[in-house]
Design a protein around this nucleic acid. Sequence first.
DNA 1: CAGTGGTCTAGACCACCGA
DNA 2: CGGTGGTCTAGACCACTGA
Lengths: 253, 253
Amino acid sequence: MPQKQHSTGLDVSGPDPLYKQVEQRILQCLAEGEWKPGEQLPTENQLAERFGVAVFTIRAGIGELVASNILVRKQGKGTFVARHSRLRQRYQFSHIHDKNGRQILPGRELLSFVKDVATPEESARLALPSDGKTPVFRLSMISIDEEKTVATLDITLPARLFSKLTASAIRNAQENLYAAYQDECGINVIRIEEHIHAALATPADAKALKIRNNSPVLRVERTAYTYRNAPVEFRTRIFDATKYHYRTIEGSI
Amino acid sequence: MPQKQHSTGLDVSGPDPLYKQVEQRILQCLAEGEWKPGEQLPTENQLAERFGVAVFTIRAGIGELVASNILVRKQGKGTFVARHSRLRQRYQFSHIHDKNGRQILPGRELLSFVKDVATPEESARLALPSDGKTPVFRLSMISIDEEKTVATLDITLPARLFSKLTASAIRNAQENLYAAYQDECGINVIRIEEHIHAALATPADAKALKIRNNSPVLRVERTAYTYRNAPVEFRTRIFDATKYHYRTIEGSI
DNA sequence: CAGTGGTCTAGACCACCGA
DNA sequence: CGGTGGTCTAGACCACTGA
């Protein structure tokens, strides 16, 4: 029966099925900060009442977001906004392995943290105005594993979004940097795109990685996105290709 | 109510939920060849009756397999075993892009097709006995895009699984090679793992790719798997790293 | 038109969690 | 113990397909 929508914005006769609309509405609430990383969402029954649909429909919508690693369900407890610092997800995005196939989960050392203006390339990558005066933070770091330098790591962040980020917060971040982004700035990285290049070590690379000039290196450029496909971070890592390689899996099961 | 299982192998009180058991049983039927690539499965109602569960449970099980790209649902038609040759999936596994960000979907030229015995490394990668006398096929090819050589491509296949594969079948394969594996040998690749290395061009690489010795190359090593995690193909591709790079996306939405 | 999968409901029982 | 999500049922109506 009509089931009168309580002006929740959901439309039974709309182009999208109800559960897709539920998904979008939840995503909207997340983007607006109604539920922050780590927080518990209302129960499925409450959401069902709020949106004027059956529990099944809520479950279908939430199910999509769980599959995307945006929400986490815990039986007997509730549904929560996913966090990067949770161990299971800590190195969700790490793909670097050594010659023995061991995954590298490096620590970090912050070398510099400065404010600057975005270059044209950075403006393009981060969807910022390319007026030559958009402020960005520039972080220069090295990745360390077993006391050895594994990679150089250079990060560019839009200063507007990360105004609360401090050097000490980064130095104190024990886990994934993305957990610090969540805790300090409320920014939730949910998707990354990586471009992997092979190149020859520049003199700067060679010095930082303690390798010879023109030896092969892997250059991994990453753009990280939050809700609604908004880019929030651009980083470049450079590895000694004689020691490390990049590994991906596709297709599941 | 008891709902008496018709000795279908499904167990309500088992450790796994029914829909997981449905998933495993369907996977088993696929591995045994009961339904071949491109074929239609029984309808959801028929499967529900066959397995003695509700349609919802069948849908949940099939849903998992659809999410894994192993089955395809077509509204109004039925559920089918996924095929690689379908355009949508044709380059499911291609990750190579040029400097302008354009995805490269190369053609192939077969240079040689010989029978040999597996090396120790190949035996390890393909889970073959390393007795030094396991027969394999070795395919040497080049990838071609717009009449230019994009990469060298060397493939090793267990001869036992691919006994029906012929050089002409490969030359005639217009689409993805994996479609030829399906059509000629009934082998369905559903997952791949890739290792991406940066290296310097060997003299052989340089000659094949028309680049200079010791210029940077990307070496992409892939192992392809079918149902039950069984490896069925090992391939190595080498690209000119000054023209091409590798691209991945992770995290969806 | 009949048959398929797609969506949705209402409700049941279970396993798990924490007080 | 009550509340949460996890599983499952029985059924309804819809959208799409192809004869």
